[in-house]
Amino acid sequence: MTSTDLSAMALPARRFGWLTRLWKSRPSLLIGLSLAWLALVVAMALFAEFLAPYGYADQSLLKRLQPPAALGGLPEYLLGTDNLGRDVLSRVIYAMRTSILIALMGTLIGACVGTVLGIVAAHFRGWVDDFIMMLVDFQAAIPFLIVALAVLAFFGNNFVLLVVLIGLFGWDGYARIARGLVLSTNGQGYAFAIRTLGVHPAKVYIRHVLPNMMGVIMVQVTLNFPEIILLETSLSFLGLGVQPPGTSLGLLLGEGRNYLATAWWIGIPAGVVIFLTTLAISLVGDWLRDRLDPNLKGKPA
């Protein structure tokens, strides 16, 4: 069932006007808010040094466990301080940077690996196709968090391995989509026709097929990105992802868990940020899908 052609997803490339159509369709208030939140998150991640009132490791042991300013804490610590007297707001801002950065790199790796493998599978067919689709089925069959935990257990934790692992999550989705699209254009479509002109297949893929795929790939990114954030934060929450003294939203929530009874504000803000970010991307993703792909309307993600 899994390796059949996703002809439903293999939509013919929409016209060039998709950007224009996107621009013309007026987003709702909810989408506006989501976009604004995402812009804020990106700004925080990019300009953490300038936006964070303190460094993420700055301790002031005399001002430990201060509640947020609005709940009777010190006015200079908007979201309070943690058990070492570090500013929670600053830590959340820096943690956003780490989590977003890892998720972006992971998405990029997954999208590239998956798309290339999908194209390779559809181009060569035969045993290459069978082999790649077997890997896709394998990836889909085993919960990735388990695989990631096992690999981290065997190799020990380091940042590069973490990013690579997170990048490998979700490549199967891109591979399936790319394979389906290439199969449909190679069969009777423009990619096949252009090859009969004598153009080298590699050029056909780079010049024609990939640019036409970008819309659908971007939709997949909006599906994949929240899940990647959840994977990284889960791993970090379990203490197996980003390691102290680094920060990540999941790590903050994990650290805050120990102070839930006395100082809930250490962990909860990070959790809220994760929640709002994945929610915003999901909403924007749904909206993008409806705009770009009229055929997918009403179909579940």
């Binding site: 929240p226 959840l230 934060t233 889960s234 929450f237 999941g250 929530l253 868990r257 839930l260 809930w264 962990g267 909860i268 959790g271 994760i274 929640f275 994945t278 929610l279 999901s282 909403l283």
Partner: peptide, 18 residues
Amino acid sequence: TILGHSIPNFFLGIILIL
């Protein structure tokens, strides 16, 4: 469903505990 889909389950758990 959108809320349930977006909320990380460990965060939901912590909120419930809280």
